[in-house]
Amino acid sequence: MSSFPFQYGVNEFTTQPWSFEEDVARYAALNVDAIEICEAKLDPQRTEQQLRAAKQAGLAISAVQPKIRTFFSSKMAPEPEGIEARVSAFAQSMRTLSPHVEGAPFVMNTGAPPEGNMQRCLDETVHHLRRLAPLAADLGVTIAIEPLNPTSINIETAIWTIDQALDLLDAVGHEACGLCLDYWNIWQQPDCAQAIRRAGRRLMVVQASDWRTPYSGMDRLIPGSGSIPLGELLHATAEAGFRGACTLEIFSSGVPDSLYDQDLSEVVHQGRLGLERAWNDYRSAEHSV
């Protein structure tokens, strides 16, 4: 029996071709423990009903991906233009969804630095997080900033390492803000496992997939089928004190072997097996030394 210490969650981006209702029904049938909500899949007229259905299906809500999750523009969500409009959109997502996702982190990143000005991007991100963190606390939710892979620099992000994210969190200085850790994004940074341990209790969201040299930014693999040392990173995450959901987050479109064109139920099933195998194999290797 696996001793995997985390709940198994699935981010709705992983099953992009399915509707929200299909996600809920099929995740529950596959014994998924938690769902990471993508606001873009919700019907604004039925949001409360949809989120209630997820809970009734036995799915914990591990995190939320708001429609607008960057303060500066991004390739994934270029509209609305203007920082204030984007900050307001993020705040509105928290206000709308927080009554139905108690305690959940809302995932965000900086967006693309204007004209490559990373310092301005970081300074303004800190400023706006200082504004939003008390609101999140009042609403009973949190905000988790996600460093992205260097492939996204100047497209979606100004930060690409755990340490950069921790520096930003130190500058914000509010307990309602923490870290979203996506192994695909950060696994290549130096001393990655040690950086995860340093994050400690600031870890709020953990996401997993696997890596090959990507054909695009939408090219991720099922855990255990690529290059990421998942076992080492999972153990570092547990040693940091995290005990929430380890969430499968896969983007896979516009490539010849797109997982979106395959049996998504099998993708979800194999995702769990790959994570459990990585955890157990690393533990066995440690004990054999």
Score class of each variant (00 low, 15 high):
1 M>W: 07
1 M>E: 09
5 P>Y: 15
9 G>I: 11
9 G>R: 15
10 V>D: 01
13 F>K: 12
14 T>E: 03
18 W>T: 12
19 S>V: 12
21 E>M: 09
24 V>H: 01
32 V>C: 11
41 K>G: 13
44 P>G: 09
44 P>T: 08
45 Q>I: 06
51 L>C: 13
52 R>Q: 00
54 A>R: 08
57 A>E: 09
63 A>F: 03
64 V>W: 05
69 R>P: 05
69 R>V: 01
73 S>Y: 10
73 S>F: 12
75 K>L: 12
76 M>V: 15
80 P>Y: 08
82 G>F: 02
82 G>E: 05
83 I>R: 02
84 E>P: 10
85 A>G: 06
86 R>S: 06
88 S>L: 05
89 A>D: 10
91 A>W: 05
92 Q>W: 00
93 S>V: 09
93 S>P: 15
95 R>L: 00
98 S>L: 10
100 H>G: 07
101 V>D: 07
101 V>G: 03
102 E>K: 13
102 E>S: 12
103 G>N: 02
104 A>Q: 10
107 V>S: 09
112 A>N: 13
113 P>S: 14
115 E>S: 15
116 G>N: 06
117 N>W: 03
119 Q>F: 13
124 E>P: 12
125 T>H: 03
128 H>I: 00
129 L>A: 11
134 P>H: 08
139 L>W: 10
141 V>K: 06
145 I>E: 04
145 I>L: 03
147 P>C: 04
150 P>I: 09
156 E>W: 06
158 A>W: 05
161 T>W: 04
163 D>P: 00
168 L>E: 03
170 D>F: 05
171 A>W: 04
172 V>S: 02
181 L>N: 07
184 W>I: 01
188 Q>I: 08
189 Q>K: 00
189 Q>A: 07
190 P>E: 06
192 C>E: 10
193 A>R: 15
194 Q>F: 12
196 I>F: 04
198 R>N: 08
201 R>H: 02
204 M>Y: 07
205 V>H: 07
205 V>P: 00
206 V>Y: 01
209 S>E: 06
210 D>C: 08
215 Y>M: 15
217 G>W: 03
217 G>I: 14
219 D>I: 13
220 R>N: 08
225 S>W: 01
230 L>R: 08
231 G>F: 04
233 L>I: 15
234 L>K: 12
235 H>S: 14
236 A>S: 11
246 C>R: 02
246 C>F: 05
252 S>V: 10
252 S>W: 05
253 S>P: 00
261 D>K: 09
262 Q>C: 01
265 S>A: 15
267 V>H: 05
270 Q>M: 04
270 Q>H: 02
270 Q>T: 11
271 G>T: 01
271 G>S: 04
272 R>Q: 02
274 G>E: 03
276 E>R: 15
280 N>S: 15
282 Y>I: 15
282 Y>V: 12
283 R>F: 05
283 R>D: 00
285 A>Q: 13
285 A>T: 14
286 E>N: 11
288 S>Q: 04
288 S>L: 00
